[in-house]
Amino acid sequence: MDSPLLQVTDLTMRFGGLTAVNALSFEARRGEITSVIGPNGAGKTTVFNCITGFYRPTSGGIALTHPDGAVFQLQTLPGHRIARRARVARTFQNIRLFAGMTVLENLLVAQHNALMPNVASGLLAVFGLGGHGAAEVIAIDRARGWLDRINLLPRADDPAGALPYGDQRRLEIARAMCTAPVLLCLDEPAAGLNPRESDALAELLKTIQADGCSVLLIEHDMGVVMRISDHIVVLDHGQRISDGDPAHVRADPNVIAAYLGEGDEDDPDVPLAAASDGPLAAAS
C-alpha cells in the first residue's frame, strides 16, 4: 500500500550524442536516506538535475508521491513548481548561497512562497497590508530555529559569503529545509569537509530524517554514505549497476569492478570494507 516517495522509471537523458543517463530506474522510499553513488561522470548529478527540473529528461518518468497521496510527474513540471508544489528541495555541488545577503536573509528568501503567495500580496506588503508582517515573524522564527540547529545563530547577521566553507555547506542545507520539503536532494554535501565536519553533517542528516523528511544524497565520502544510508543506488556510465542496503552494495562485485576498474577479474572479491581508506573513500 505504501507507495515509494520517488519512483524513477526508465529515465534517459541525452546531450546530443552523449547519453548521460540510460534507462535508469530506481526508487526512494519514504522516510529513508537514499544515496546515489558512482565514479565521476557516472551521471549522478544529471539524475539530480532531472529530478529537480533543471533538465528536461529525454524520456522516462519521475513520479513523486506525497504522504497525502498526491502524485507529481516531475519530468513535466518547471523547476520552481517542483520546489514549490512537489516540495523537492536541493543543494548544489558548488555552493550557491546568496553571498551578498546575510545568513538570515538567505533563510527568508527560501520561505518566499510562504511570505508572498502571489504578486498581489507581495505588492500589498509594501503598504503593510496582506499579513506580511505576521508571516515574516513566523518565517524569522523558523529561520532562527534552523540557525540554532546548525549552530550559526551568532552569525545570523553576517553575509553568507563571509562564512567558512563548512558553515556555508550547512547553511545551504538549512536554506533548502526552510522550504519545508518532503524530499531533500543533496549534491555532495560532504565535499571539502574535514572528518569532524563530515561527522556533524551525518548527524544533521540523521536529525532531518528523524523529522520525517526523506533524503536523496549524492556523495563520494563513503564513510558518510555507508554510515547513514538506508538504501544505496550505484551508477556507472548512466546505468544502475547495483541497488540495495549498504552491506549488499559493499559486497557487490559489480560495484568493486566499477570503482577499481575492469582489470580486477583475478581478485573479484576484494571487500570494500577492507579498502575503507582505499578508492571509495579517496574518491571524495
Partner: peptide, 22 residues
Amino acid sequence: VALGRAWEALREDEIACRSLGI
C-alpha cells in the same frame, strides 16, 4: 518585504532562486 528580497536574491543567484521555488 519578500518581493524585494527575491529581486536581490535573483541578482545574487538565479539558479538557487529557482531551486527554492521562486
